Lab assay of single mutants.
Amino acid sequence: GTEDLKEEAKKALKKGDKERAKRALKKAGLSEDQIKKFIKEVL
Rank of each mutant, 00 (worst) to 15 (best):
K27Y: 06
F38A: 02
K6S: 04
L43T: 06
F38D: 00
G29Y: 01
K11Y: 08
E3T: 09
K11H: 10
E32S: 07
K26P: 00
E7P: 01
L13W: 07
K14Q: 13
K40H: 15
D4I: 10
Q34C: 05
K10Q: 06
T2Y: 13
A28L: 12
E7Q: 09
K26C: 05
F38G: 00
E19Q: 09
F38P: 00
D4R: 13
T2D: 11
I35L: 03
D4A: 14
V42D: 03
D33N: 08
E7R: 08
V42S: 07
L30K: 01
I35P: 00
E8I: 12
S31F: 03
A12V: 03
T2C: 06
K18R: 13
L13S: 01
Q34L: 06
S31T: 13
D17R: 04
T2G: 09
D33E: 13
K37C: 08
E41Y: 09
K10P: 01
I35C: 03
A9N: 01
E19Y: 08
I35K: 01
K36R: 13
E41L: 10
R20N: 09
L30D: 00
F38V: 03
V42W: 15
F38Q: 01
Q34T: 04
K26R: 15
K37F: 08
G16E: 02
L30N: 01
Q34D: 13
L30V: 02
A24Y: 15
D33M: 08
K10D: 02
K22F: 14
K26S: 09
A21I: 03
L43A: 07
K15M: 15
K6R: 10
K14P: 00
K14D: 06
A21Q: 00
A12Q: 05
D17I: 02
K14G: 07
K37Q: 15
I39H: 01
K37R: 11
E19N: 07
K36I: 14
K10M: 12
A12P: 01
L43Y: 09
E3A: 11
E32T: 07
L30G: 00
I39E: 03
E19A: 11
A28S: 05
E7W: 08
A9R: 01
V42C: 08
E8H: 05
S31R: 05
E41M: 12
K18V: 15
K6M: 15
D33A: 12
I35R: 02
I39M: 09
L43F: 09
A28C: 05
E19T: 07
K26Y: 09
L5E: 04
G16C: 06
I35G: 00
A28M: 10
